[in-house]
Structure formats: structure tokens, C-alpha cells
């Protein structure tokens, strides 16, 4: 079996808190592992503060983890390259940012943004450059390309800007695109178009997409697999249909119950207690809010359980259901 396209292994990241000379650190990511295959969309869902964007920055190599490995086609890139990413890595892993109003430089034209990526990675030069820029714009549905290439970001709508951002990522012909909430800043009528565009890329070009979102409904439509993050840890992962239709972790169930969908979503109570204390250092991070939490949950970190094929749940309640523990998965 060939190694996965992109693999994260036990990534940890913490940030210093407190002032000068303080050694206190806040953990943002704890032992996060996952893999992404060619042509697959993996949705990373979680609330704000769950560490989604930190994980995106680690994989885009805008930041370096405290420990853990990133493997691209089985090759450990952190061990080889250290803190700053090589051009080869940038040529294979690209990122689309959340806010298209901020991710394009206001002083440069659309064409400049695309040309730089093409030139920097040796994908085109000379007369071919203009032709390639136009082809890229057309491939993301921005026509007439000749006119749009000359525009400045402020002359475009939010949806158009996000398409330019996708085109820039595509310019380097990457294998992986990390999309950090690519539609949350867009107007609703333009969101779906951008999502369809991303989905098309996996079908047509075999690009693997890590789709970061807080919107479970978009995740359901776009993703092949879902990874649920809570307080910096993976709590549940599996095929989208399994995780969203038969959620096992109480946090996943809580998230699903809060999606504004259907006439009586406000009438059903939330399956959680109000969090009064921050996540404990020991045990399950969700325990203070979990309606089913018992003594085990406050004392020991639950291992991963495998209720179904490829469906991993990090919850003590799974073991009491008689599902056998799978120790191999937790490594």
C-alpha cells in the first residue's frame, strides 16, 4: 500500500502565555494525527478555539509544531527541512485563506498574484505566462479572463476574490490544498459556487483537500471524511456518512444538534451542560460539559475506539458498549 498523500503524526503545539519570563504555555493541539489521500476531501470541524486554524498553519508550514511529524507522500518533511519549508513543499501544498478581503494584496492586480506563483515555481514564463493566467482564471469560473486579470482586488466581489485565491493556489499545480473556512466570509449566494469549485478540483485533478470549517452542513456535502476537533484533540473521525448520521462522541452530537436546520431546531434542548470550568489537564477535555461523564472521564484520557470500519471515537462510553478496544489505533 502506498503511503497517504499527506499525513500528520502526533502534532503538538502550545503557545506561551503570561508575560515576560513566564514559562507558562497553553496547549492548542494535542497529539493530532490524521491522513489525507489523493482526490479526497477531509473536513476538519470544531468550534473556535479548537485549534483548527493552528493546525492549518502547521500544515501550510507557516508555523512549526513543538513535536510531531508531517509526512508528504511518506517523506518526513519536518525532519529534513526543519523550520522553514522548501520551495518543493510549497509547490505541493497550498493554502486558501479564510478572508479573501485580506489574503490578496490590495496594491497588486489579479494577474500579478497568479504570475508570481507561476514564475516562482517555474510553471510558466514569457509569453506563456499571460496565456496560463487566463487559463487559470477560466478554470475557476472567472470570465472574461482578460478583463479580470487586470483588476485590483477591491474591484472584485468577495466570491470573485475567493476564486482568485483558489486560482493562485492552483497555479503551482499542488497535490494538497488546505482550505481554511473558505466560505465563511462570503455572501450566502456565492458560497455554494466556491464549494462546488473545490469539489471539482478533487474529481478532475486528484487534489487532496483539507477543508476546515465550523459548518457541519457544508462538511456533509463536500467531504469524504470528517475529523472532529475539540480543545485541540481529535475526538471523532470517520467517513462523513458514519460520523454525521451516526455520531458516537457526545461532542459531535452536540455540534449536530446546534446546526440551524429544520423548523424546530430551537425547540430541542442541547445535549450538554454549561461549561463552568476550563478543560481539565487530566482525562477527557469534554468531560465538564458531557451529560454522560462519569469518574473515568475525569481521570484518564480515553483511547480511540473503533465502532465501525474507519470510524474512530475517543470516548470512554464506547468501551462500556462492549465494543472492543483497539489499542493499535491510538498510536
Amino acid at each position: 500500500m502506498s503511503p497517504p498523500l499527506l499525513e500528520a503524526a502526533r502534532l503538538n503545539r502550545s503557545f506561551p502565555v503570561g508575560g515576560f519570563l513566564s514559562h507558562a504555555r497553553r496547549k492548542v493541539l494535542t497529539d493530532v494525527s490524521f491522513s489525507l489521500e489523493r482526490g479526497e476531501i477531509l473536513a476538519l470541524v470544531g468550534e473556535s478555539g479548537s485549534g483548527k486554524s493552528t493546525l492549518a498553519r502547521l500544515l501550510a508550514r507557516l508555523d512549526t509544531p513543538d513535536s510531531g511529524d508531517i509526512l508528504l507522500s511518506g517523506e518526513n518533511v519536518l525532519a529534513r527541512e526543519g523550520g522553514s519549508a522548501s520551495l518543493a513543499y510549497r509547490g505541493r501544498v497550498q493554502m486558501v485563506f479564510q478572508d479573501p478581503f485580506a489574503s490578496l494584496n490590495p496594491v497588486h492586480t489579479v494577474a500579478y498574484h497568479l504570475e508570481r506563483s507561476l514564475v516562482r515555481h517555474g510553471r510558466a514564463r514569457g509569453v506563456e505566462l499571460t496565456r496560463k493566467v487566463h487559463a487559470l482564471l477560466e478554470s475557476v469560473g472567472l470570465t472574461p479572463a482578460e478583463q479580470l486579470a487586470k483588476r485590483y482586488p477591491h474591484e472584485l466581489s468577495g466570491g470573485q476574490r475567493q476564486r482568485v485565491a483558489v486560482a493562485r493556489a492552483l497555479a503551482v499545480e499542488p497535490d494538497v490544498i488546505i482550505a481554511d473556512e473558505p466560505t465563511s466570509m462570503l455572501d450566502v449566494s456565492t458560497r455554494r459556487g466556491v464549494l462546488q469549485l473545490l469539489k471539482g478540483l478533487t474529481r478532475e485533478r486528484g487534489i487532496g483537500i483539507l477543508f476546515i470549517t465550523h459548518d457541519l452542513a457544508s462538511a456533509r456535502h463536500l467531504a469524504d471524511r470528517v475529523l472532529v476537533l475539540y480543545a485541540g484533540s481529535v475526538v471523532e473521525t470517520g467517513r462523513t456518512s458514519d460520523v454525521l448520521q451516526a455520531p458516537r462522541h457526545p461532542y459531535t452530537r452536540l455540534l449536530l444538534s446546534a446546526v440551524p436546520d429544520g423548523a424546530d431546531f430551537l425547540r430541542t434542548p442541547l445535549p450538554a451542560r454549561v461549561a463552568t470550568t476550563p478543560p481539565p489537564p487530566l482525562g477527557c477535555a469534554f468531560a465538564p460539559r458531557c451529560p454522560h461523564a462519569d469518574v473515568r472521564c475525569h481521570e484518564a484520557l480515553p483511547p480511540f475506539h473503533l465502532p465501525a470500519a474507519e470510524h474512530h471515537v475517543r470516548c470512554h462510553l464506547e468501551s462500556s458498549k462492549g465494543v472492543p478496544d483497539d489499542a493499535a489505533v491510538s498510536s
Partner: peptide
């Protein structure tokens, strides 16, 4: 700002 991060990711 994101456009600086985007330029880093683009390999500048």
C-alpha cells in the same frame, strides 16, 4: 495580515 502569509505559502 493574510496576504503576507499567502505570499509565504506561494514561496516568496
Amino acid at each position: 495580515r493574510d496576504f503576507v502569509a499567502a505570499a509565504v505559502v506561494a514561496g516568496e
